[in-house]
Design a protein around this nucleic acid. Structure first.
Lengths: 282, 282
DNA sequence: GTCGCGGTCAATAATTTATTCTTGCTTCGA
DNA sequence: TCGAAGCAAGAATAAATTATTGACCGCGAC
């Protein structure tokens, strides 16, 4: 039970001095942190032993124990306040750049999470898991995400090819066969070259996974499975950051879904090998 | 600020004994109430003074002060838990993956934010802003982050060179001069090749910015400015995701700090040009 | 090597807390 | 009215906890 409630409850049947202590604690609960039993006694012009006895009477092991409890209670009580204050409009002014940026990102990530059915994510993870070869392509910023994801897949033991360049990818794709998967990263999904690539890939009986914005676009329309990203900000320099974060979070989810028994083991083996490569002793 | 977050953030650059204390507190935060500094020391088979020094190093007045803070944090945290758990007990199971992953990332990002002084970020942004040429290098996963960041800088009108390869970078660096900046991305900061590169760069009177984990490492030690990342998870397949997110968030902060008047205009011009390139009509 | 530095610990000083003991006051009943 | 019992409070003191000091060790730089 909260010590403050307890103090209030017992206040009535306390002696005069005890009541002084009780009142002080109720009034200054948030300041108690900086009071030792002696300082508190001095402040109230009473003896230190009275403070200790007061604590013990209330059922605490001693003064520090009571103090600790009050600290908890104050924290719990002010917790709600902090949250509501943070939401209030004027708080935005004080909040740092990092904080608002972070919130924008979080919003984008949450939106993205909402528009991708968890089951679809599971299916895509399964599709990738049993794929023969996986091809990843993306241009510009999409390319970085594609590359990183390709690398992750490779660590899991999936044979993966990554390209930034549709021309080179065309060549790679010529060896595609049934059971292979092409992941196409394209924010707008409007890239003619990528769409053509997808068509070719499907002709070779491969499955195409599109990763685009949550708009209707040709790439998405013709894909066998789709991952969708939502990220908005009126400031042109912020929006790409949000897109990247949301995309990354989405891909991370798929990646984690793929990390089961065997593949996880493979991953760890690979990480060990990499560790060796990077070892400063070399 | 929550002492637990702080402990987590600093954990990297702690000594072995300090880390034992940190881990114990993180694992048993809710039991700390019943531990005096001596008991805690006994439990960990270390000296009591180490516990006190640990508390003071973290910025608390002493052990009781730290303990009090942890009490508050635990109270706040368990209060929140009660609320969320009460709201949707079964939803936690369904969405757990995405949700917990997201929480882990958030924690890493917060830790990272804590260990980078905002002023330092501002200085780094200024340094990059007035740099003549900026060179970015990183290997493996660090490479992707380096590449993305380089691309962002280029959009802001800063002349930027990016490489994945120390050999190629060596060649590029030969044209470096006073006022140029080298950003070295290296999670562990132990890459001999990158350290050598930094040395060469400094010899040519350029400034070196390191981007590493919050450990003490040779790269960081010799840099003119440092960006630090904190990200931890015992699961080997999760940790890289956290590292990437935290790193990304940190870089995004620097990027946003750089987006002022002229540069922002340049960015928008560039984005328009890119839009043209990507236009489906072409 | 050895110099300095950072980290740890044992010893100890300082502070804080808990207990004891005394005093003074009140109450109650002879 | 006078103890005797009961209780609250404070002073003194004991106990505990915490903070500091100084010595020692291991390690990296020079």
């Amino acid at each position: 039970m909260s010590p403050l409630v307890k103090i209030r409850a017992e206040r009535d049947q306390m002696s005069a001095i005890e009541r002084r202590i009780a009142d002080f604690m109720l009034d200054n609960a948030h300041l108690l942190r900086d009071y030792s039993s002696q300082q508190l006694a001095d402040a109230l012009q009473i003896s230190q032993s009275s403070v200790v006895k007061f604590s013990q009477k209330l059922g605490f092991k001693g003064y520090p124990d009571l103090k600790y409890s009050v600290g908890e209670a104050v924290a719990r009580a002010s917790d709600g306040q902090v949250k509501t204050t943070a939401r209030s409009p004027r708080a935005a002014t004080r909040e740092s750049l990092a904080e608002t940026l972070w919130q924008s990102k979080s919003r984008a990530e949450e939106e993205t999470r909402l528009i991708n059915d968890p089951e679809t994510l599971g299916e895509i993870a399964a599709l990738l898991s049993r794929a023969g070869k996986v091809y990843c392509i993306g241009l510009g910023d999409d390319g970085s995400a594609a590359q990183t994801f390709a690398q992750r897949l490779a660590l899991l033991g999936t044979f993966t090819v990554h390209h930034d360049d549709p021309v080179r990818m065309t060549a790679s794709i010529s060896s595609a066969e049934r059971g292979d998967v092409l992941m196409v990263f394209s924010e707008q999904g409007q890239q003619a070259a990528l769409n053509q690539l997808s068509r070719q890939f499907r002709e070779r009986h491969g499955k195409v996974i599109s990763v685009t914005r949550h708009t209707s676009n040709p790439l998405r329309a013709h894909a066998d499975a789709t991952l969708l990203v939502s990220a908005h900000d009126e400031r042109s320099h912020i929006q790409p950051l949000l897109y990247q974060s949301a995309l990354q979070h989405l891909l991370d989810q798929v990646f984690v879904l793929m990390c089961d028994g065997d593949r996880l083991e493979q991953l760890n083996t690979n990480l060990e090998h990499i560790q060796h490569l990077l070892d400063p002793k070399l």
